Amino acid sequence: MKRYSFLLTPTWLGWLAVCMVFCFACYLLGQWQLDRRESALEEINRIVANYDQDPVPYAEAQELFAEGSPEDEWTVVQMHGEYLWEDSLLARNRGHGGQVGYEQLVPFRESGTGDVVVISRGWLPTSSTDGSVPADNPVPPSGEVQAVVRLKPAEPEIDRGAPAGQLASINMGEYENQVGYSLVDGAYGLMAQEHPAPQEAPRQLARPALDEGPHLSYSMQWVAFGLLSFVGWWYAARLHRRNLDLEELDAAEGSYDDPLGATDPRVERQERTRLAKQLRRRESGKYSDEDAEDAWVEEHLVSSR
């Protein structure tokens, strides 16, 4: 280890500290990716558990809508009542199939409880001539309607304005301010089916994907990057030690009558490194008869080329 005593100098210890900080940062980034994977798996589990289940009556899901808990997302609920079309609004900047458009939001008065629940009936593309309005805004069925919806927690309020008749997010507080009466404010319903079926309806939003994403592989990559920093530090130390060996050999050439053939122009860099090691063994008293015989043989082999 004496040969690598330079690793205890401030410069090399400083680079080791940099490697440790970098490795710790990579560990934190890896944990961040694992947390994102955990969130994705929770969402997948909710979809699998709730999305395709038989609908439950609204009376049984009334508290779920009031609470709006993420664990109840995608619960299928059957409702009976009527749309309040005159109070419909549009949620703007909603993506669907790689395009940006609107979601049509219509309050729905549930006949059994009298609750008014906001239902998103689907997605509407923007007009080709005026991007600030949808291309069409189909009217929902009138009178008594049976609707099957999937529960979605209400969205938080965002600091962004919207034109008249539109919302920046599906936030029930903002909706109440525009219509002037109370709504079930924990969640809203995402349309699955309605009866009677209308002649024209918004496009249904796509089924959520069951994809956890590349978070696990990314976390492993970050850990690997952190460990590679120590490998790079040690490799740099090996190169530095090799350069020191060559410098020591060059310095010793003036003290010996070219005993190791170091001045031979045919001796390559690798050969000079080997000769430097022999020189160190000779100076330290560890140069044995076998080493001398090997050096004699190698010297004559080089001379005979």
Rank of each mutant, 00 (worst) to 15 (best):
R3A: 14
L7H: 03
V21Q: 01
Y27S: 10
W32M: 04
S39V: 09
N45S: 15
I47K: 04
A59H: 12
A66R: 15
E67L: 11
T75H: 11
V76G: 05
H80E: 15
G81F: 04
L84H: 10
E86K: 13
D87M: 01
L90V: 03
Q104N: 06
P107K: 07
G122M: 00
T126S: 12
S128K: 13
P140K: 12
G143P: 03
E144P: 03
K152D: 10
K152N: 14
A162C: 07
P163A: 11
A164L: 15
N171E: 08
G173Y: 08
N177P: 01
S182R: 15
D185W: 01
D185P: 01
G189T: 01
Q193W: 11
L205T: 06
L210S: 04
G213Q: 07
P214W: 09
L216H: 08
V223H: 08
R238P: 02
R238C: 09
E247A: 04
L249F: 05
G254W: 00
T263H: 10
Q270M: 06
R272N: 08
T273Q: 12
R274C: 00
R280P: 01
R280W: 08
R281E: 12
S284H: 08
E290A: 12
A295F: 10
V302M: 14
S304R: 10
